[in-house]
């Protein structure tokens, strides 16, 4: 378990800060302080203020809540259909398997962020259109992994034993195959969590994610970009660090989880 300490510490501190921080730091992320435009970090504004006098720390915390929420939503919304498709594909086989996997291949042929862009544009833009775009791009990851896991586990003797003792296909699937596939899927979940955060920020950066006043890390970097080279580094550095911490934390968690759980093929 000591392998998991570092990633859990990173993510735990971040989650505590963004979810409990607002109880201590009671400034509205949209409130403008007309006495401090583009103020450098100080005791009043530990991360400074932006061009309209909004507190960057308050926006950072709100952006963090949004990012972690989106990470969780994408993870679950991608896992459920992805795992189901993988399961059906492996279990039913034949033509169904071929068709489903061809569809997954077609989706996975696009670089994920570009596919997410296409879906977000198709849906007319906005935060949730972008989130759905990211979800669609994660489904093939889950589906292919689930399929190969079920195929791998099915060749073990304990599956034969379960069937020989009269276990129905559903029973074997539910009690013998899915629990063994779960560990690998868990690792995949962790890496999708981080992937969702960084991709949503990228979409926000090209203008397809959250709308402008929303405190979202990618949008904050876009808004701060024009000030990055005139000395107001705090507008871009802090939200980027937020993304970095969140994504490195989850990637590390995925790495260590796969080591601890011994999932050899992830």
């Amino acid at each position: 378990m000591r392998h998991l300490f570092l990633p859990f510490a990173i993510l735990g501190v971040l989650a505590l800060a963004v979810f409990l921080g607002p109880l201590l730091w009671r400034i509205d992320p949209l409130e403008m302080d007309f006495t401090a435009f583009l103020a450098a970090p100080s005791l009043d504004h530990p991360m400074g203020t932006d061009a309209t006098g909004r507190d960057v720390l308050a926006r950072f915390l709100a952006g963090g809540r949004l990012s972690l929420l989106v990470g969780a939503v994408v993870m679950i919304a991608g896992l459920v259909p992805g795992a189901l498709i993988g399961l059906i594909s492996a279990r039913v086989g034949g033509l169904v398997d071929t068709v489903l996997m061809r569809v997954m291949d077609s989706i996975a042929a696009f670089p994920p962020i570009l596919l997410a862009m296409a879906v977000a544009i198709g849906l007319g833009g906005g935060l949730w259109a972008a989130v759905l775009g990211v979800v669609v791009s994660t489904v093939p990851f889950f589906a292919r992994l689930m399929r190969s896991e079920v195929m791998r586990i099915r060749s073990f003797p304990f599956i034969e034993a379960s069937e020989a003792m009269g276990g129905t296909p559903w029973f074997t699937l539910r009690w013998h195959i899915v629990p063994h596939a779960a560990t690998t899927m868990l690792v995949q979940c962790a890496s999708v969590f981080g992937y969702a955060i960084i991709t949503l920020a990228g979409l926000g950066f090209v203008g397809l994610g959250a709308e402008v006043p929303t405190p979202e890390w990618g949008v904050m970097i876009t808004e701060g970009m024009q000030y990055a080279l005139t000395g107001q580094w705090w507008l871009t550095i802090f939200p980027g660090l937020g993304i970095l911490i969140a994504v490195v934390g989850t990637n590390l968690l995925a790495d260590r989880l796969s080591k601890v759980l011994g999932g050899g093929n992830s």
Binding site: I221, G240, I243, V247
Partner: peptide, 12 residues
């Protein structure tokens, strides 16, 4: 390297 947003790294 896998956790750094590329556009942000460009700005840095």
């Amino acid at each position: 390297a896998l956790g750094v947003p590329q556009f942000w790294f460009g700005l840095v």
